[in-house]
Amino acid sequence: MTTTGTTPPPTPVPGEVKPRRAIAKREDAAAPGAGKANWLVKLALVILCFLWIVPTLGIVVTAFRTPDAANTSGWWTVITSPLDFTQYTLSNYSQAWNEGMGNAFINSFAVTLPATVIPIMIAAFAAYAFTFMEFPFRDSLFVLIVALLVVPNQVALVPLLQIYGNVGLTGQFAAVYLAHIGFGMPLAIYILRNYMSTLPKAVVESAKIDGASHFKTFWRLIVPMSVPALASFAIFQFLWVWNDLLIALLFLGPGEKEVVTVTVAGLVGSQNQGWQLLTAGAIISMIVPVLVFISLQRFFVRGLTAGSVKG
């Protein structure tokens, strides 16, 4: 199921730009401009798309070429001799995989999965309280969370490095995913709370009248209804953590436990290993986020809209 994220979601989505205007939204199929592109518009878009895809194409092609071919001729020469099969190989991938990428690939999962799953539940509880409960400082606390959305993560790194050093966490996967849980929390609460506040209040009130506790209402009613928002955050956080270099480099660094971004950054630095290896490694590092992105783009766009300002 691949949508390009071109169609805005039908339900009012947290943080979405201008949800109130959704009422006046015109139907996509009936867009008056659709299909009326003249050749100039088409040409401009073809050129743009070409410019956008060519850089990526370069490394995709190179990753399938033999070391010799990759290092002595441009990748675009395959266009003139596409049937010269001596220049192609699959061994770059196996070589890259065996020389560190395979290891890093698993490490990336070891960091990314906990960093994605754990904050969801913690944030869901908090978002429920912010939406459906009354307590002192509620609004000021939420404003603090909104402000923290924009704060760059760098602000926490110096002391965290010291603290991790003191408690012996540096170099552990937990050092990275714990940090990501903290850094992702404001965004998670923000997305979920905005979504929950669009749910009908009557649902919660009638549950209360029926004698359900907050705990029960939360689990039985609100969590199942919030699945789209939970998914949006999960995908956003997954891509964010998987693609992060700074925090992984700082807290795990290069070595046995390095993640894919750190490995590829290292490969760029040591170019004597050759381009075919670097490109194959880079593609291994990209394959998971690109697949997640393509298959779940709809949810990702919502998360993006709400939380793209994440520091």
Binding site: T261, A265, T279, A282, S285, I294
Partner: peptide, 11 residues
């Protein structure tokens, strides 16, 4: 957008 900064730099 789905590609990491490191991947973008490699490209």
């Amino acid at each position: 957008m789905a590609i990491s900064g490191v991947g973008q730099a490699t490209i």
